[in-house]
């Protein structure tokens, strides 16, 4: 099993805003994949995952199903509970089979009310920004991409786990 996140679609370098020279169909798809903060969504193994936040603590799966079922077929729903209170933690993760359904849910439900609370809705998973595919902060940890195949790489002879970014941040 590969470690890396599979991107099922043919890479279409959507980060060049608006897909510049590409054709109409492509740029429409690119637009459909945009998050509110202009990152580009990625497909997960079996579909598109959206996150819903500010979910009322007394919401139940039926309430989520009622609201989000109208945008498409909900393949999976995670409505996690607060471990301390037993009430809903405040977010939901929803899987739709197609980009169109996920897009419709984001467009149709973002900043609308669910049980009297205004919810936020967006894609959960996005592509890494250009030039940041695997390395980070230019410190050559290589945590992202290559060089991490063997377990020995990391945890032999005293853990040499990644250090925190303390003092390295700008």
């Amino acid at each position: 099993m590969g470690d890396d996140m599979e991107v099922d679609d043919a890479p279409l370098s959507p980060q060049q805003e608006g897909g510049a020279a590409s054709g109409g169909a492509n740029s429409a798809k690119v637009a459909a994949m945009q998050t509110h903060t202009k990152a580009t969504a990625v497909r997960s193994i079996e579909g598109w995952i959206i996150m819903v936040t500010n979910v009322h603590e007394e919401a139940d799966e039926e309430a989520i199903q009622d609201k989000f079922g109208e945008f498409g077929e909900i393949k999976n729903l995670h409505l996690n509970l607060d471990r301390r209170s037993g009430y809903v933690k405040g977010y939901a993760l929803i899987e739709y089979p197609t980009l169109e359904e996920a897009r419709a849910a984001i467009d149709g439900a973002h900043e609308t009310k669910l049980l009297d609370q205004t919810i936020q809705v967006d894609f959960a998973f996005v592509r890494p920004p250009p030039g940041k595919t695997s390395g980070r902060d230019g410190n050559g940890r290589g945590g992202g991409g290559g060089g991490r195949n063997g377990p020995g790489n990391r945890n032999r002879g005293g853990r040499s786990r990644s250090r925190s970014p303390v003092g390295r941040d700008d």
């Binding site: 470690d3 996140m5 990152a39 990625v42 936040t53 967006d122």
Partner: peptide
Amino acid sequence: SLIRKEMCVSSLVIDEIKRI
């Protein structure tokens, strides 16, 4: 078995983690 996964999440996910 060593399971390693890496993914990139949206700002909404991060906002929620910060909120928690």
